[in-house]
Amino acid sequence: MHELSIALSIVDLAAEEAERRGVKVNAVHLRLGPLAGVVKDALLFSYDLACEGTPLDKSRLIIEEVPVMVHCSRCETDREPISLQDLRCSVCGDPTYEIVQGREMEIAALEVE
């Protein structure tokens, strides 16, 4: 369970950004991949705790889940794999060796006023 420390980094980054821009943050929008090793529900739970006593108190966390994409050399394009447990191309069934998306852990945007 490392989501609390991740929530604290998110709050730090967002507070820094808000101060630099001189705005108040209402919501933080994240992009999160399933291979980031971060559990969405645990992060949402930790976020409220992490915000307490900071300028982000009462702000919301909005998480966009980014699907895993792999590069399929047979299809010569990026595809979704069959599943996280089976990284074969969901179209042709060939094994894939390169994950092109799915490790995202980023703040995409801030909703401010």
Binding site: S9, A14, L30, M105, E106, I107, L110, V112, E113
Partner: peptide, 17 residues
């Protein structure tokens, strides 16, 4: 500007690490 608006940030949140 007034009212809520969305600003793009695009920062990895484990950027420091």
């Amino acid at each position: 500007m007034s009212g809520p608006r969305l600003v793009e940030v695009r920062q990895k949140f484990l950027k420091q690490n």
